[in-house]
Amino acid sequence: MTPAPDKKPDRRPPYQHAADELRRDIRRGRIKPGEQMPSVRELQERFGIANMTARSALNVLRDEGLIYTIHGRGSFVADISDATGEFTIDYNPPAWYLAKKAEAEGEEEGGAGKPDGESAGSSLTDLLTALRDEIRALSAEHQELRREVEALKRAQQEPKP
């Protein structure tokens, strides 16, 4: 029999692992607001992942508002923090990130605030409800932006007097 590993293997998808590491680098100031993110090729080499996996990691950060991309130039860290390094009101981390952060803080305190089975179920329900609401709001915003883009395209195509 082989001995059990000391630590559980990381079961997150590779793109999520890469996104978490990059998010951590941004939060710790290793990559500052306005600085260019590592290229997809550099991410491939750093994390040992495929091209599309590296792109997916960047997409996660872009969807969260941590980075923005300029076509043909690359991805850059958004200015989402104030002087204290905390997220400003303009940035709303996803509900799953806040839940994970709260869980980690609870573990640091020696597990004193760990919920029992019943409250864990209700907190999961609350989390899922919050995620659903976020998705609906983002979807509505996305549809509105699509309509605006279509209107702008139509306005550009109209003949000028």
Rank of each mutant, 00 (worst) to 15 (best):
G34P: 08
K101T: 05
R28A: 12
Q143C: 09
E105Q: 10
A18S: 06
D79Q: 11
P93C: 08
A18Y: 10
T2D: 03
A78H: 12
E107M: 09
L61F: 09
A120C: 04
A99G: 03
A155L: 11
D63C: 05
P9N: 02
R12S: 06
R55C: 01
A50C: 03
E35Q: 14
A4K: 14
T88A: 08
K114L: 12
P33H: 09
D116Q: 07
R23E: 13
G29F: 02
L152K: 07
R46D: 13
G65A: 05
I80Y: 08
A50Q: 13
G65H: 04
I31N: 00
K32A: 08
R146C: 12
Q156K: 10
L98H: 03
S56A: 06
S119E: 15
R147S: 10
P13H: 14
P9E: 07
T53D: 02
N51S: 05
G111C: 08
E134C: 00
I70N: 05
L152R: 09
A137I: 05
S123Q: 10
S39E: 06
P13W: 05
V60N: 02
G121S: 08
I49N: 03
S81C: 11
E118C: 07
E158G: 12
K153C: 07
A102G: 05
K160D: 09
L66K: 04
L66Y: 08
I89H: 15
L152F: 15
I135P: 00
F47W: 13
A54R: 03
V149F: 10
T69Q: 08
R147D: 13
E21Y: 06
P33T: 04
L131M: 14
L145W: 15
V40M: 04
G85P: 11
P14S: 07
S39R: 02
R46G: 13
G106M: 13
A151P: 00
R132D: 02
A95C: 05
F76P: 11
G29H: 02
Q16A: 15
D10V: 08
E158R: 09
I31P: 00
D6V: 13
K101Q: 15
E86F: 05
R146F: 09
L22T: 07
H142A: 14
I31S: 01
A102Y: 03
G111P: 11
P161I: 06
R11C: 12
R24L: 10
I67D: 03
R73H: 11
S39I: 02
P3E: 08
N92T: 10
E141F: 02
A155K: 07
E150W: 06
T69A: 09
D133F: 00
P38Y: 00
M37W: 12
A140F: 14
D10L: 05
R41E: 15
G65T: 05
R62M: 04
E150A: 14
E86A: 14
P13R: 15
I26P: 04
L128Q: 02
D82A: 08
F76I: 00
P5F: 12
R30A: 06
E107Q: 06
E86T: 10
I49T: 01
R27Q: 12
L58S: 03
T2I: 02
H17S: 15
N92I: 01
L58F: 07
E86I: 04
R55D: 00
P38D: 06
E35P: 01
P93V: 01
N92D: 14
P38E: 02
D63H: 08
P38L: 02
A78M: 13
S81Q: 14
A95I: 01
G113C: 01
P5T: 13
A155Y: 04
K160V: 03
E118R: 07
P161V: 10
E144P: 01
